[in-house]
Design a protein around this nucleic acid. Structure first.
Lengths: 137, 137
DNA sequence: CTAGAACTTAGAGCACGCTCTAAGTCCATC
DNA sequence: GATGGACTTAGAGCGTGCTCTAAGTTCTAG
C-alpha cells in the first residue's frame, strides 16, 4: 500500500497515437520540433500524456489540417509556455490564421464551382458519345 | 514577305510563366513529369505555348490548389492524350476529385467554426486581463 | 527471473514538389 | 558578326514533414 506513488498517470505513446490518430513517430517528432513540451515521464523515463496534452495535440492537428506550417505552430507553442502576457500575440496569431483560412475556403469554393461546371460539360459529352453509338442500331 | 513560315506562334517559357503565375522551372518540370505534353517548338527548339496550353496549365493549377498530387494529375493528363474513348474515365476522375474537394471544404469549415469560437474565448480573456490592469488606477 | 513487447534517443532516410546549376545553344540588337 | 539575354538539357540540391533504424532500456506477463 502506498500513500501516493509519484508515477504520473496518463496515456503511453502508443495509446496517445491511437487516441489522436497520428503515429508515435510523429508525436515524438512534434516534441523535438518544439510543438509539444514537458510531457510527464514515469520513473523509467517513459512519456505519460495527460488529458490536456490530448487537447493540445488535437488543436495542433487542426492547425496542421488548415495548412499552418510547423514553424508557425512552434511560434504559437512557444508563446503558450510564457503564459499570461502572451495572450495578445496568441490572439493575433489565431486571428491571422482564421483570416487566411477563410480566404482558403473561398478559393476552394471557387475551384469547386469551376470543377462542377466542367463535370457538367463532360457528362454532356459522354452522353452524346453514347447516343451516337446507340444510334447506329 | 513569306507565304507561311513554319515557325509556331505562341508564348515563350518566360511569357508563359508570367501568364500562368508559375516559374519557368516549374513549367519545364511539369512537362518532364508528364503533366504537359507536346508543346510546339521553333526551328531552334524553343517552346511556344498556345492558348490551349495556357488553359490546360490553368486547369492543372486548379487541381494542384485543390490538393491533387502530381501522380494523379499525370494519370489524367495521360488519359487526355488518348482522346475520345477516355472521356468516361476522365469524367470519373473528375467526379471523384470533386467529391474529395467537397469533403475537404466541409472539414475546413468545421475547423473555421472551431477556430472562430476559440478566438471568441481568447478575446474575452484578453478583455478581462486588460480590465484587471486598468482597475488598479 | 526471464522473454518479448513497448519504450528511449539521435540521427539517417524518404516522398514530394519544386528550384537551381552547369554547360551549351539560340536569338535580337548594335 | 559579335555580345548578351533567353533558351535548352540532364541532373543535383533543397525545404517540409514525416518515417524509420539502431542500439539500448523498461515494462508486463508467465
Amino acid at each position: 500500500m502506498v500513500d501516493h506513488d509519484d508515477e504520473p498517470e496518463g496515456l503511453s505513446v502508443a495509446q496517445m497515437a491511437e487516441t489522436t490518430g497520428v503515429t508515435g513517430y510523429t508525436l515524438r517528432y512534434y516534441e523535438r520540433a518544439g510543438l509539444i513540451s514537458t510531457i510527464p515521464r514515469t520513473s523509467g523515463n517513459q512519456r505519460r500524456y495527460r488529458a490536456t496534452d490530448v487537447e493540445w495535440v488535437r488543436f495542433l492537428l487542426r492547425l496542421r489540417e488548415t495548412g499552418m506550417p510547423i514553424a508557425q505552430m512552434r511560434n504559437y507553442a512557444v508563446l503558450r509556455t510564457k503564459d499570461d502576457d502572451s495572450l495578445r500575440p496568441r490572439l493575433d496569431m489565431l486571428t491571422d490564421h482564421h483570416e487566411a483560412l477563410r480566404r482558403q475556403i473561398k478559393t476552394l469554393q471557387a475551384h469547386e464551382r469551376a470543377l462542377r461546371s466542367k463535370i457538367a460539360t463532360y457528362r454532356q459529352m459522354v452522353a452524346d458519345t453514347e447516343n451516337e453509338e446507340t444510334a447506329d442500331d
